[in-house]
Amino acid sequence: MSEELADKIATVSIQHYLSLPGKSGKPTNPSEWTLMSSIVLETGNKDLKVVSLGTGSKCLGKNELSKDGGLVADSHAEVLARRALLLYLYGQIHLLQNQLESDVFSKMENGKVFLKSDVRFHFFTSHTPCGDASIIPKDEPPCKVARLSEHADVHRTGAKCVPGARQDPKLAGREYHVVQAVRTKPGRGDPTASLSCSDKLAKWSAIGVQGALLSLLLDRPVFLASIVLPSNCPYSEASLRRAVIFRLPENCTNFPKFFRSSVPFPHCKLPGGKPCPTSLLWSDSKHFLGGNKSFEVAVDGRKHGLGKSKALTKAGRLKVCKVELAVMFKEVAAKLCVKVDDCNTYRDLKDKASFYNSEWKSIREFAFPEWPEKDKTFEQFCV
């Protein structure tokens, strides 16, 4: 991959973001900023197309989480773009099941859908991923940093080391942070259970972005070919590689390449500015979003613009919340004759993905021993 392609990925992502309706999860005044991430499909003929996009910088605190799977806990742009990709992939399976052509899948056979060999997915994000990748020396060339030098100060990350593991010493300069630590995102007073985007990108680089449920339907995992950042944010390829790649076992080989494009993001993070309070979620999957609508606006993990009486009902759910994604999975799985009728809860569905779960357990024990186990009480809801 070339820097020219990285610029094209950044350009098509930003142009798509700007083309979406003006009051839909984007800054509305000069003092606001937002984070934006997208996933761009590249096919064999080198066409580039944005297939998912998300904006946002907020998470729900532990006390705000929902046990019915109806709220999205993590609304950082990277996470929403990846969840919107799941919508896209379900939509592509739906096309194949209706004997229509899919951009990414070639055939269905023995309960599996096969990914085309010439398909690649690229990840654009408008700011350095929170967590370990954001710990970047301030006074060294950004692409030549192998480790933090003795006298360097570093950019800070608001993500906190998980309890019970190594903690930041918060000393001067390079001693402020420890590196390669699993971290949780900051909340608004109430601590969150959401892990940093650096940690999530590392996980996706190890076992794919498709997650447990889709792993039951696909012939192989879906990996990111590259991660592209704009020109107007802190950048260090070495820090990205340290955060996303160097923590993984040697048998993990589907690593993304990293690029800094020459293209700026127009709504970048501003000193003294305020984050946009809403998030935008877009997916090239109208079938699952309903009618001709291809985007949703979110606030506090649910649809924006609904009164309190509807906020926690089905009408208030985002299509990328756990329960809605589980319903989509069961819909396409049934048409593939994948037996899931005996699964009553979301946890039951995830337990079906035994190979995926085993792979992740092995990687987590080797590379991320401090990675917290999920609280399964939040996965016992019925689907």
Rank of each mutant, 00 (worst) to 15 (best):
S75Q: 14
H76T: 10
A77M: 01
R83G: 09
A84S: 15
A84V: 12
Y88P: 09
Y90I: 06
I93D: 09
L95S: 10
Q97R: 07
Q99K: 15
Q99H: 03
Q99M: 07
S106K: 10
M108L: 07
E109R: 13
G111F: 07
V113I: 08
V113M: 09
D118G: 15
R120T: 14
R120K: 15
F121W: 07
S126Q: 03
H127L: 08
C130G: 06
I136R: 11
P137M: 07
P137A: 07
P141I: 06
P142D: 12
K144Y: 04
K144C: 12
V145C: 02
R147M: 08
R147H: 09
H151W: 00
K160V: 13
C161F: 00
V162L: 00
P163V: 01
P163H: 00
G164M: 00
A165L: 06
Q167L: 02
Q167T: 02
D168N: 07
K170V: 03
G173S: 13
E175K: 11
Y176S: 01
H177I: 02
H177M: 03
Q180Y: 02
V182E: 02
R183E: 08
T184A: 05
T184F: 09
K185W: 08
G189A: 14
S194T: 14
S194F: 10
S196Y: 06
C197V: 11
C197K: 12
S198A: 14
D199S: 15
D199G: 12
S205T: 05
S205D: 00
A206S: 06
I207F: 00
